[in-house]
Amino acid sequence: MNMKLKSVMIGAAIASVAAMPLSSAVAKDYPPRTLSFVAPSGAGGGWDLTIRTVAKTLKDTGLVESNMPVTNRPGGGGAVNLAYMQTQKGKANMISVYSPPILLTNLTGASKYSYEDTTPLARLITDYAAFVVSKDSKYTSIKQIMDALKNDPKSVKIGGTSSAGSMDHIQFLMVAKAAGVPKLNQIDYISFQDGGAVAQVLGGHVDLISTGLGDVVSLVKSGNLRALAQTADKRIGEGVIAEIPTVKEQGIDATFENWRGLFGPKDMPAYAVTYWNKTLKDMVETPEWAEARHRNGWDDAYQSGEEFTKFLAKTNEQYKEILSEIFSK
């Protein structure tokens, strides 16, 4: 081959690569060898359980071969990690789990960032709130708790793993409001974001924990905690879990869904968004994921990224109305 022809061919090849869209050129190398999965909470909570279950299922099913270490980045009811995500704009290798606090921390002023400062990838599951006490507690029903609060809003100390004004706090106040408890802003709520809420209720330092049912399933099954109520519109689970009465059964007209989904940084590249939409859709259809949902008492609530974004916008408005009602007095 003469030098002139070779030069022309090399030039054409370079021009072809240069003309190739950047996303196409990078997409074939995605995902990278290591992905960064993040739980914006301490170990052992609902976010931690969800993201670790996702990583294990993706690995076990062979859907993703990359390393998927999970980092815990607690603080501010998820606000600390949400702020960190702003430093990762446009990047493709970070996946974080969130639930209602990604909306609530913004609506209550705890964070200036919200779901609009991320890339929603998929809603995966719905858990429900659970209100649990120690096995030796004098309280045996959620109605007894509400009656005590009606007489004295300081008589029951409530603990949770989210920050004040965020999910564990709000879900309890929603039920209290529906039960007719006055002076909601006087109820003592103590946040244990380090995951120490269970130890606090077992030690008698708080009377009740407001949490996600999936977070305390094993402790309820073991008998160390007693669940007074859960917030689905029906009985759920099996065995001891199926014995937990709903709030509505106890004469309080309230429900609460603790949905959980995955988010990438804002402006996540289109090739990564496309990859995760397909991969997560495939994951939720596997028997491994079905078994994990069954084991943790999660209901299927899958939505693609586009559907999830619409859901978030609608839910954000609903939460805004709820907060306005609760804190209007």
Score class of each variant (00 low, 15 high):
residue 5 L to Q: 12
residue 7 S to G: 12
residue 14 I to K: 11
residue 14 I to R: 14
residue 18 A to R: 11
residue 19 A to G: 05
residue 21 P to H: 11
residue 21 P to D: 14
residue 22 L to K: 15
residue 24 S to G: 01
residue 26 V to R: 15
residue 27 A to M: 02
residue 27 A to I: 05
residue 29 D to H: 08
residue 37 F to T: 14
residue 37 F to E: 11
residue 41 S to A: 07
residue 51 I to D: 12
residue 53 T to C: 06
residue 53 T to N: 08
residue 56 K to V: 01
residue 57 T to Q: 11
residue 57 T to G: 10
residue 63 L to P: 15
residue 65 E to G: 12
residue 65 E to A: 11
residue 67 N to E: 07
residue 68 M to T: 09
residue 72 N to H: 06
residue 74 P to A: 10
residue 74 P to E: 06
residue 76 G to I: 03
residue 77 G to L: 05
residue 78 G to N: 03
residue 79 A to C: 07
residue 82 L to F: 04
residue 82 L to Q: 08
residue 85 M to R: 08
residue 88 Q to T: 08
residue 89 K to C: 01
residue 90 G to T: 05
residue 92 A to F: 01
residue 92 A to W: 03
residue 100 P to R: 07
residue 105 T to D: 04
residue 112 K to R: 13
residue 115 Y to Q: 02
residue 117 D to E: 15
residue 117 D to V: 06
residue 121 L to Y: 10
residue 122 A to N: 14
residue 124 L to T: 12
residue 131 F to R: 08
residue 137 S to K: 10
residue 142 I to C: 00
residue 157 K to H: 03
residue 159 G to V: 05
residue 164 A to E: 13
residue 167 M to T: 15
residue 168 D to A: 04
residue 178 A to N: 05
residue 179 A to T: 08
residue 180 G to C: 07
residue 182 P to I: 04
residue 184 L to M: 03
residue 185 N to C: 02
residue 185 N to G: 03
residue 187 I to T: 06
residue 189 Y to K: 10
residue 190 I to E: 07
residue 190 I to V: 10
residue 191 S to I: 02
residue 192 F to L: 04
residue 192 F to I: 09
residue 196 G to P: 12
residue 198 V to C: 02
residue 203 G to P: 13
residue 204 G to T: 05
residue 204 G to N: 11
residue 206 V to P: 09
residue 206 V to I: 09
residue 208 L to T: 10
residue 215 D to T: 13
residue 215 D to N: 13
residue 216 V to W: 05
residue 221 K to D: 08
residue 232 A to T: 06
residue 239 G to P: 11
residue 242 A to I: 00
residue 243 E to S: 13
residue 245 P to D: 01
residue 248 K to Y: 03
residue 249 E to L: 00
residue 257 E to F: 02
residue 259 W to C: 03
residue 262 L to G: 14
residue 263 F to C: 00
residue 263 F to H: 00
residue 265 P to W: 06
residue 265 P to V: 05
residue 268 M to E: 13
residue 269 P to K: 12
residue 270 A to W: 11
residue 271 Y to P: 14
residue 274 T to Y: 04
residue 282 D to N: 09
residue 282 D to I: 02
residue 284 V to N: 15
residue 286 T to W: 03
residue 288 E to K: 14
residue 293 R to E: 10
residue 299 D to W: 08
residue 299 D to S: 10
residue 306 E to N: 15
residue 307 E to K: 15
residue 310 K to W: 04
residue 314 K to T: 07
residue 318 Q to S: 13
residue 319 Y to K: 12
residue 324 S to A: 15
residue 327 F to E: 12
residue 329 K to Y: 10
